[in-house]
Design a protein around this nucleic acid. Structure first.
Lengths: 189, 189
DNA sequence: CGTTTTGCAATGCGAACGCATCGTAAAACA
DNA sequence: TGTTTTACGATGCGTTCGCATTGCAAAACG
């Protein structure tokens, strides 16, 4: 056998290349050859670690989903209101990590409209997110309809992410909008 | 010469087929052959009316953009508040026309993230929309920062459109969310 | 030390792609 | 009526695609 190799690490490297291709040129620019070139490896290697292109794309999807979840999990704040704000801001492309992930998320989100197989995991992630946000809203402002407010906030930041990505809204304006929206929800939602 | 033919009508028919393909299977499923098959015409015909695939896609983009704008323009209401609500609801896939157009809009929106040429017209449409909404917000509730509220509303309905499209939010829940968001903006925004 | 198994690189294949070219039926026009 | 021009249908070309196959160097294992 050849040198024992870290299988998961190799898959992650290739999955990273997929995400870079998606972020730069969109989902339909993903081909085995482009990904191999982006990763700086041979096409045979890509095929060795992923049986089909579909498996490759699904792995990339789970990869960035996991990363986004990890970024959320690593957010800490001393009070629930700041925590809530930090999470909402983390969904926007305001730092290097989020700016790299947001275009990929946007591409998969749009693909989910016509590919039901992406819908299920996306919906589950959103549902968890809503429950999570609703809990924090309740902590800040008990009563009302926290779940509805959470859904509204999620839709709002999702849309805002796209607006920022297409250059419609600047990063500073986005932060301002989030703060205002948050204040509106928490004070009179 | 053969029977004089309505050039624009033919282009519109083919553009319609493009939109149907996008709505059903996404932007990357658009090929000259698929579009020709969907339109029920020969591939030569498609090529006769569109020099390149790119021109075909751009035409389809302007076609649905124009239709969305036309739908907005045809909305009438007796008071500004209802008008505002009607416009926001018109952006969501709640009726047959909007349900057909929304997936296409979502696809182009995501493509705009990686294709700057789509960004410009999209941004202009959004900017007009924001000005329009801001005017109506002022009519309902003078003062405040109507432009900021308009941008927030637009981001909100854009995100909500996607959530409805991927089945995360039902149509009834979407209407409820819009009403609540609107009330929140107009009473304490 | 030889066998075996793993990790790949290279190559080939059929299908689908965008686009160019060519041929032609037919109607408007002289 | 003859000519010309328009609207195509048909076909072919070169490229790229996903995927299958083949071959082989190298290291773990007996």
């Amino acid at each position: 056998m050849p040198k024992q190799v870290d299988h998961d690490e190799r898959r992650r490297q290739i999955g990273d290349a997929v995400c870079r291709v998606i972020a730069a040129r969109g989902l339909d620019a993903v081909s085995l050859r482009h990904v191999a070139a982006e990763a700086g490896v041979s096409m045979g290697r890509v095929q060795h670690y992923f049986a089909t292109k579909d498996e490759l794309l699904m792995f990339a999807f789970e990869l960035i989903s996991g990363r986004v979840a990890a970024r959320f999990g690593s957010i800490v704040a001393d009070d629930p209101a700041k925590h809530l704000r930090a999470i909402l801001l983390e969904l926007l492309p305001l730092n290097a990590a989020a700016r790299a992930e947001a275009p990929v998320l946007a591409a998969f989100l749009a693909q989910a409209v016509v590919e039901p197989r992406l819908g299920a995991p996306l919906r589950q992630g959103n549902t968890e997110m809503v429950a999570w946000l609703a809990g924090m809203i309740t902590a800040v402002r008990p009563g009302g309809d926290p779940e509805r407010d959470a859904m509204a906030l999620l839709a709002f930041v999702d849309g805002l992410m796209l607006q920022v990505l297409i250059g419609q809204v600047s990063q500073e304006a986005a932060v301002d909008l989030v703060d205002h929206q948050l204040a509106s929800v928490l004070t009179c939602g």
